[in-house]
């Protein structure tokens, strides 16, 4: 696909140039409009949601994340070889699929932006996550598997199996470490690990947590978790990540600070009812425009609420207000579960 190859090369070039020289809104918009036009021509879902020809990034349709659970979003054909990342399971068992022909842009972007935000991370990575060799459809595991490349040495040790943190094994592994480590986990895996009473990490270590508790832990707030990490593990750095299976780029932050998107990911907050962009600093529904989403959809509409600050950084509030406004009727998740056997 020559068009794709050219686009991919242009985006890769922008990844490099925007990091070296800073973001370029004009170049971003030009690339975004080119990418959207290509996706519109090759992705039926994007085409169905597009009316006319967008003149700006904000006019490009953002595909609601739920559609990734119901339809093949993107340009990859049904039988075409591809990499598939899937969202975690839901109560109804429906998982979203993000399909890409390759992970070249994902990998380049993930490494470059983490390095820019958090230089000199330890190459010895301990992950309270599933090994991607066993769970190849986890985008989070895929990303963490890249991290040793940042230090040009090291490896990842995985301590999650069948959804259960191998806390004792992880604790023993960490207790034997004398060099700094980079400990990576989801919030709920980290909370489970802390329950195992781990020792402080070696000096110079870093900890990354990502995601909320998604109803799995109600006894711990985000602030409580961060405090517990500082108290028990005593890392030199505590890093927070915001990512989604439906995105190919990540946002990084520190506890209590806004998340920083890379220059190739633009975040727009819109009024959830009118869909008009809100003023910077005003809460709204978050839409992401990710140039690394080459094969799927440039624009993604989340169900999350947050603030996009004037510098482009993002403060996340969580799910939009009124998440269950349907009285005694079925939720959409329940409805999917009910009809799933027939689909």
């Amino acid at each position: 696909m020559p068009d794709r190859d050219q686009l991919k090369a242009s985006i890769a070039a922008y990844l490099a140039s925007s990091l070296a020289e800073g973001p370029d809104d004009v170049r971003f918009a030009e690339l975004a409009l080119r990418l959207h036009a290509w996706q519109k021509a090759h992705a039926p879902v994007v085409a169905a949601l597009t009316e006319g020809t967008p003149a700006s990034v904000a006019e490009i349709p953002a595909v609601p994340v739920d559609l990734f659970k119901q339809l093949p979003v993107g340009t990859v054909g049904e039988h075409e070889p591809c990499v598939v990342f899937r969202t975690s399971g839901t109560t109804a068992g429906t998982r979203g699929e993000h399909r890409s022909r390759d992970t070249d842009l994902y990998d380049a972007g993930a490494l470059a932006w983490l390095k820019a935000c958090e230089p000199e991370l330890p190459g010895h990575v301990v992950a309270l996550l599933s090994n991607p060799a066993q769970v190849p459809d986890s985008s989070l595991s895929h990303m963490v598997a890249l991290f040793p490349q940042l230090a040009l040495r090291g490896e990842v040790h995985w301590f999650l199996r069948d959804g259960v943190v191998q806390a004792e094994a992880a604790r023993a592994h960490l207790a034997a470490c004398t060099e700094p480590v980079f400990l990576c986990a989801t919030s709920f895996a980290m909370a489970d690990f802390l329950d195992a009473d781990p020792q402080p990490l070696p000096a110079g270590s870093a900890v990354m947590v990502t995601g909320g508790f998604k109803g799995r832990r109600t006894d711990l707030s985000e602030d409580d978790l961060w405090a517990a990490i500082h108290h028990r593990l005593q890392p030199a750095r505590l890093i927070t990540e915001y990512g989604m299976t439906e995105l190919s780029s990540q946002l990084w932050g520190r506890p209590g600070t806004a998340y920083r998107p890379p220059p190739w990911l633009k975040v727009i907050a819109v009024d959830p009812v009118t869909t008009r962009p809100v003023l910077p600093g005003t809460p709204g529904q978050l839409r992401f425009y990710d140039l690394c989403n080459l094969d799927s959809s440039l624009g993604i509409e989340t169900m999350d609420e947050g603030i996009v600050h004037p510098d482009g950084s993002v403060t996340l509030f969580g799910r939009l207000a009124g998440a269950e406004p349907r009285g005694c009727s079925l939720t959409v998740e329940e409805a999917w579960g009910l009809m799933d056997d027939d689909r």
Binding site: P44, V45, A48, L49, V63, P64, V65, D66, L67, Q70, L71, P272, V273, T275, Q285, E301, M303, E305, R319, L320, A321, G322, A323, P325, V332
Partner: peptide, 16 residues
Amino acid sequence: PAEAAALRSRTAMVRV
């Protein structure tokens, strides 16, 4: 807000 977003999501699905 969430209701409007959910409606938009479903409408997008049906457009396809």
